[in-house]
């Protein structure tokens, strides 16, 4: 899939401070019977947003979500742990998030997010704590410079896998990159046969 290039993003945050937010929280398994990747935002954090009777949980910070205003999710450590379901970043991206920030993001989730225009940003403990303490703060995430800038001018750098960064910046599809290696793949198969 191709995405529009993501250069930088300025938005307010939504904070979910819990550690170990697993992909079953991000999208409960009962919504995984779909055969499409579209429209999953309706199920993002479903059981956090709605109670047993389907009524909106007023206390949830997600309830006041406005995709234009708040496209950055700040979460506790080990975000996205658990299952490999790509439905998790599909749901978050469809819900309106363009980036997720934590001190530590689970491997498979990170890999899946990068393929779906949802930027996973891992920051140091100090920055993480600041972000957790200030929900709704406006930030600028600059993918090109790999920086997160807070409203008071505090700035920190983050790591992002260089190939994924290239794909996001240029709108390149990783499958195209793999297809371009086809002659080497064929040669590999011949040599080991």
């Amino acid at each position: 899939m191709r995405f529009k290039p993501l250069l930088s993003l300025t938005s307010k945050t939504i904070v979910l401070p819990q550690d170990n937010i697993d992909t079953d929280q991000i999208i409960p398994a009962r919504f995984l019977t779909t055969t499409s990747r579209k429209g999953l935002g309706a199920f993002a954090f479903y059981d956090w947003r709605y109670d047993e009777d389907g009524a909106i949980r007023e206390e949830s910070p997600l309830d006041s979500h406005d995709p234009v205003e708040r496209a950055i999710l700040v979460a506790g450590s080990n975000f996205g742990c658990g299952s490999s379901r790509e439905h998790a970043p599909w749901a978050l991206a469809d819900f309106g998030f363009q980036a997720v920030i934590s001190s530590d993001i689970a491997d498979i989730f990170k890999s899946n997010a990068l393929k779906n225009g949802l930027l996973p940003v891992e920051v140091d403990q100090k920055t993480h704590q600041r972000l957790l303490n200030n929900p709704g703060e406006e930030l600028t995430i600059d993918l090109e410079k790999q920086t997160v800038r807070l409203s008071d001018g505090w700035q920190t750098v983050f790591e992002v896998e260089p190939f994924a960064r290239h794909c996001l910046l240029e709108g390149v599809d990783p499958l195209g990159h793999l297809m371009n290696q086809m002659s080497l793949i064929e040669q590999f198969e011949v040599e080991r046969a």
Partner: peptide, 8 residues
Amino acid sequence: IGTTEVGH
């Protein structure tokens, strides 16, 4: 792996 990678 994720579903995109299943496609790969």
